[in-house]
């Protein structure tokens, strides 16, 4: 069953030089209970995708397309309803745990605030719930943590606090935007294990945004690779890591030293969004470029095994 369905999403931002397209014609869907890895290099539009789903983009962004969640189009419902969905139905964990927490409020108060506002619980009930949540995300001494401030916690602990806020209202979908990038290896491992456990126990779906393919391999059930605001490949996890189709996907796996010990870098650099190439957006960096790639942009076509790829090597 489809929980979230994004159809033909396009996002542009108004800059001094006019509108710049950040996302073009993005379509994908999330099913119940699945962990979708949204992957790509910086500037490919993964974070903007997340912010569009939650309608957190500023007024200088122009959004087209539709995002269906439980039957309603999130892009057209009134702000009042959207507030119920944020945190309640869809929640998000950001990358930088220090800037996402209020430095002058106690941990417990910050988690409790949302329960108070959204569920209208009494003070005592709120505290009990917060302690329970802190326990669930792996704190052994929740009572003490309740009264601590963010600066008294380590990076990994802060991220756990954010996760407890994200699950507090029992959302159906949790979006994680590079939640472990700022952490050391051991803490990263803990956080990933915790997320896996929570997704299973609470039967949530998760969109996991990352540039790290090693994490995708470990965590996700499906993978979507973005390049310059477009999905260029989407596959089930095992199939993707065994046989990536798009030349960009192949290059990424080789660059991240995942397949074999041979390093075959992708040539060139990611183009500026204000100056994107004609035809297939990857063609200036592609080793298999053909005439047609320069003139036309390939469509996102279905492959065997329920995957999709955007490349003329696999038909039009």
């Amino acid at each position: 069953m489809k929980l979230l369905e994004i159809e033909d999403l396009s996002v542009s931002v108004l800059t001094e030089g006019g509108y710049v397209d950040i996302i073009s014609g993005l379509s994908f869907s999330i099913r119940k209970g699945e962990i979708y890895g949204l992957c790509g290099e910086s500037g490919c539009g993964k974070t903007v995708t997340a912010l569009s789903i939650l309608r957190l983009l500023g007024s200088n962004f122009h959004i087209k397309g539709s995002i269906f969640f439980s039957g309603a189009n999130l892009l057209s419902i009134p702000e009042k309803e959207m507030r119920q969905i944020r945190g309640g139905e869809i929640s998000i964990v950001f990358q930088e745990p220090m800037t996402s927490l209020n430095p002058v409020l106690k941990i417990g108060e910050q988690i409790g605030e949302m329960l108070e506002v959204q569920l209208k619980l009494k003070k005592k009930e709120v505290k009990d719930r917060v302690i329970e949540l802190l326990k669930e995300v792996g704190f052994e001494d929740p009572e003490r943590r309740y009264h601590q401030y963010p600066h008294q916690l380590s990076g990994g602990q802060r991220q756990r606090v954010l996760i407890s806020m994200a699950i507090a209202l029992n959302p159906k979908l949790i979006i994680c935007d590079e939640p472990t990038t700022a952490l050391d290896v051991a803490s990263e491992w803990e956080i990933l294990n915790l997320l896996l456990k929570l997704v299973k126990q609470r039967n949530m779906a998760m969109i996991f945004i990352t540039h790290n393919l090693h994490i995708v391999e470990r965590l996700c059930t499906r993978v979507g690779i973005m390049y310059l605001g477009r999905l260029i490949e989407e596959q089930k996890k095992d199939i993707f890591f065994e046989r990536p189709l798009h030349p960009y996907s192949q290059g990424l796996l080789s660059s991240a030293l995942i397949r074999g010990d041979e390093l075959k870098p992708i040539k060139g650099t990611v183009p500026d969004l204000r100056n994107i190439p004609s035809g297939c957006k990857f063609h200036p960096r592609c080793d298999y470029v053909m005439d047609v790639c320069i003139k036309e942009e390939p469509k996102f076509v279905k492959t065997d095994n329920e995957g999709y790829v955007r490349c003329f090597l696999y038909g039009t």
Binding site: E41, S42, L213, S255, A256
Partner: peptide
């Protein structure tokens, strides 16, 4: 650096 650029600099 980004993954694809990392590989270029390493090689």
């Amino acid at each position: 650096l980004d993954v694809s650029i990392q590989a270029q600099i390493l090689s």
